[in-house]
């Protein structure tokens, strides 16, 4: 990661420079460059994280602990990444309304994902009360 840090920062600077060059005359290309630059860096980060996540989930499944909750947490992280990316892209283009709606959709998706967890907590609590 540290070795490629400089490469990634270079990509940042290049994307920003091209974006500023094109902003005056044709802003649509400037937005396209912003989106592609952020995709470039996001893909790099995700590919770096791929190996540790696999190791953690293997360790958890070998130890016999229930991995269902870990999977749900992982899915929530994925949804957050996508939502954040889309909302930022919309906000860059100047559409704050669409960005906030995208965030709303992401929040709802994560809420629906965590309903089983909530249910199990509620069941435990109700069991204690009875």
């Amino acid at each position: 990661m540290t070795a490629e840090l400089w490469k990634i920062f270079g990509i940042c600077i290049i994307g920003a420079a091209f974006s500023i060059i094109l902003r005056q005359k044709s802003p649509e290309y400037s937005y396209a460059i912003i989106i592609v630059t952020s995709i470039c860096m996001l893909t790099f980060v995700l590919k770096t994280v791929l190996e540790p996540i696999k190791q953690i989930s293997e360790k958890l499944s070998n130890s016999g602990i229930e991995t269902e909750y870990f999977k749900i947490a992982l899915k929530a992280v994925g949804i957050s990444y996508i939502t954040d990316f889309i909302a930022d892209a919309c906000r860059d283009v100047g559409q704050a309304t669409i960005a906030s709606k995208a965030e709303l959709v992401g929040k709802t998706a994560i809420f629906l994902l965590s309903v089983p967890l909530l249910m199990s907590v509620l069941e435990t609590a109700i069991g204690f009360i009875k």
């Binding site: 893909t43 791929l50 992982l74």
Partner: peptide, 22 residues
């Protein structure tokens, strides 16, 4: 340019899907 951007976004989405098991 839009076609290129859409392809890039699709690639990102498939990466995230395969990584986080969505």
């Amino acid at each position: 340019v839009l076609l290129m951007v859409v392809n890039a976004v699709a690639e990102l989405f498939s990466t995230v899907k395969s990584l986080f098991g969505l």
